[in-house]
Nucleic acid binder design. Structure first.
Lengths: 111, 111
DNA sequence: CAGGTATATAACGCTAGGAGTATATATATG
DNA sequence: CATATATATACTCCTAGCGTTATATACCTG
């Protein structure tokens, strides 16, 4: 699998990533929660692992997978030039709100 | 083609979208700039058009394609829950800076 | 060590979809 | 109208990659 885009294009893989976004899981937990076959889960995890989307740590006979969202930065970065197309109308308002409210919004986000 | 992710997974289509992000183009312009065959360009444009990524307007015998980035919002939205993973360090810093800044503002009210 | 459980890998059949070639359609121009 | 140009579509071939089944590997427990 070449690009991060190709990897994320796979629905099952997006599901796995979304699941891991909440907390780490073992293979069988993913298997159960997403109702996928075990080989399928393992194969997708391998792809995700080799591309740096997830990381495994050994826990007895289980492997606990956790997310490493670094590669998603690339998607985010690619998206950046397009954001203007859906934000340009609110930009003026945003700028205003930012000036008025920037500090307090930042504080509340870090809670 | 099912999902916006699948559509964007195709390198040629990402190239077309990036190209159109700068300005609208005709099919043959895309063909030249991306060095793709004409049928290939047309086919990708069809996929993009049917998924709402681009919009064509007639200009003589040409079709001028422009971007309609609405569908990309979906990618952006899917990405949202993952952003914490690469911003949380920045957030901690911001929280710190905010605390420092708050104090200094208390001391010297600049408006 | 035997048996069980968790995960990984291999082999295979199948299908989606990309590239290329050929052709159809529309418009412009002489 | 004849011809050239711009774009769309049909068709065929070909490969990447998914799911499944079977099996290998690793670890745990009695």
């Amino acid at each position: 699998m070449e690009s991060v885009f190709g990897i994320v294009a796979e629905p099952s893989r997006r599901a796995i990533l979304s699941l891991l976004a909440t907390s780490e899981r073992s293979v069988s937990e993913i298997e159960d929660e997403l109702r996928m076959s075990q080989p399928s889960v393992s194969k997708h995890l391998r792809v995700l692992r080799e591309a740096g989307f997830v990381e495994a740590r050994v826990d007895g006979q289980r492997r606990l997978y956790q997310i490493r969202a670094e590669p998603l930065k690339e998607v985010d970065a690619w998206l950046a030039p397009f954001r203007q197309f859906w934000t340009e109308r609110v930009d003026a308002l945003e700028a205003h709100l930012n000036r008025m409210d920037k500090r307090s919004r930042k504080r509340s986000r870090t809670g």
